[in-house]
Design a protein around this nucleic acid. Structure first.
Lengths: 346, 346
DNA sequence: TTGTACGCGTTATCAT
DNA sequence: ATGATAACGCGTACAA
């Protein structure tokens, strides 16, 4: 296609002309919309093929006033390379799911932004048709904005408030805490410690709740001295575990909320000469990256984070296309993966 | 804004009316384009603020015939959770860089696609303004397509052919091999083995080249029996290392091309009772995820993969905006991070 | 079933 | 420095 010497892109009109139909017919074929005779449809398709015509997505989006794009906001930073497993799996599952539904994924790192009002911007400027973001960015203010706009979104992580008013997905961390605690009890461990970051980190608190309730259910005494939180550096994990074992020789198992804490706790346990799993049990959550590469390999509660991404995508697409008011949430079930660190007779 | 009872979005015309200027003036303010009187500019800006007007990005993209979107194609699969570190850092650096230049990132997982002709599709349909993809997807066919379209792109990884005809970024793997080999030599290790995946995996071969040339430079004999490749499972790594040490007691150091091979090699070395670092040295590439969490901690050649993403973004944006014919490439320099596994007097 | 005509919101060109 | 007007390519209401 040339006009005045400048190469132009093929349009729906060019196809129409070549196929001896009107532009709207071509459009209908493209969107395989209602009632087109098979004969013309085939003819048009053939011309499209011959001319190597590709619809201009910019024009389509404009005409439809949608972007066919789903925004994913994450908060990645440079140092925490260990977060990446979470990110990697969620984005894997999410992209796959939405792509199959005809959407593309736009990724935005909150951490890199100077303008923190990104959510409003994306929506007001019609850059995305739906949006997924971590629940820590959610609040009443944002909620009323979404309400007013009637804009579809899904939170990654159960929000602190309004859990029935919005779509969200999360790992069932309480269940994870229950599973791991019951496992230790079944294996005959009796004095079980719990060590993790701050309770403000929601999965820490949830896992703790599972721990606590399972102890209660089994009529175990709950000793607050066995519960250590606010462990946010590797060094602190080491020191804390060391103090704990010095003070409480009766402790015979520990639940570590993350791989890094487990790594350091394990170091302490080995240094003290305790025999794992015979005299001491240790467990953690999430298999990657370390749990299976320590000596001994750690029993973990493994989390299907790909499924988390898949669910987020499904819920979002559903609420975009059906425009349903009913809010959904998905709890991904964790599962026990027993390894050497608790492998003894119950 | 209402028309016939339906809520419409604010347009540039509404702003124009309210500010008593023409739509084109508003447009000029929005794009802070040439010569607008400060007075009108301020007035328009004030109205935009008051009305809470946001430009419709779909219309903008349509009018400009660009998407302000950069496509990143990666090939992630479900199982290889260890590859993700690479992915995480590259996307971090890339997104940051292009966002600052006014572009958004669209992420596509090649692995999830049934239609493998994604690159052409993205470009023909004008879904992206520039594209970044792994060099294994690159070939003559694709090259001629890009040439014809004059479309900007950057390869992740040095391509096998046409290295001066296209933009690409890569880690300087040959240098990495040199650094690590020279380090071992400086530390007094004399019989150095090399163990990795297939030479078809380009970084394996490059690291090997660095190893080989450094041995030559130091007048060390090159023994092909010390070079073991095609190690693509953990089990194979273990067996191969075991055989190697059984046959060649004189070996006193090993270079492991990745963390997983290093993990298994280390197991063998320890099982054989060799004293690290005193009598045996072991090194690997990339710090994450395992190198610093093994006993002993491994000396590594660390790779700044964030910088890789940053460079890819810079080169792409440059070639999009300047439309320069000159092809660029960036080699990211690796650096030695000495740890316990080679920590002895040279 | 197919064709005609117009509108989507912005930017660019050409006036003034 | 600002305004009027014509694209940009597609989808769709309405007509036939």
């Amino acid at each position: 296609m040339h006009k005045g010497g400048i190469v132009l892109n093929l349009t729906i009109r060019d196809v129409a002309k070549a196929a001896n139909v009107s532009p709207s017919t071509v459009s209908r074929v493209l969107n395989n919309s209602s009632r087109i005779s098979d004969r013309t449809k085939k003819r048009v398709l053939k011309v499209i093929e011959e001319l190597n015509y590709h619809p201009n997505n910019l024009a389509r989006n404009f005409a439809n006033q949608n972007s066919k794009m789903i925004g994913l906001i994450e908060d990645l930073n440079e140092v925490e390379a260990f977060n990446n497993i979470y990110f990697y799996k969620v984005i894997f599952g999410l992209e796959k799911t939405i792509y199959e539904c005809g959407y593309n994924l736009m990724f935005i790192n909150y951490n890199n932004l100077e303008n923190k009002d990104i959510i409003r911007k994306l929506i007001m400027e019609k850059r995305v048709d739906g949006i997924i973001f971590p629940s820590f960015l959610f609040n009443k203010n944002i909620l009323s904005f979404f309400r007013k706009k009637n804009f579809p979104f899904v939170l990654l992580g159960e929000p602190f408030e309004g859990i029935n008013k919005v779509n969200w997905v999360d790992v069932d961390n309480k269940l994870a805490g229950e599973l791991v605690t019951q496992h230790l009890i079944d294996k005959g461990y009796r004095k079980i410690a719990f060590i993790g970051p701050s309770f403000k980190v929601s999965f820490t608190y949830k896992r703790y709740l599972g721990y606590k309730e399972t102890l209660e259910k089994n009529n175990f005494e709950i000793n607050s001295k066995y519960v250590l939180t606010d462990i946010n550096t590797e060094n602190l994990a080491y020191i804390t575990m060391n103090n704990l074992l010095d003070k409480h020789h009766e402790i015979d198992a520990v639940i570590c909320v993350n791989n890094l804490i487990a790594y350091n706790a394990l170091k302490v346990i080995k240094k003290k000469g305790l025999d794992i799993p015979k005299n001491f049990g240790i467990v953690t959550f999430d298999k990657y990256p370390l749990a299976n590469y320590l000596e001994p390999k750690l029993t973990t509660i493994d989390l299907d984070l790909i499924a988390l991404g898949v669910e987020a995508g499904k819920i979002l697409v559903q609420s975009m296309e059906n425009n349903i008011a009913k809010k959904q949430h998905a709890f991904i079930s964790p599962f026990l993966a027993e390894e050497e660190s608790t492998l003894r007779k119950g």
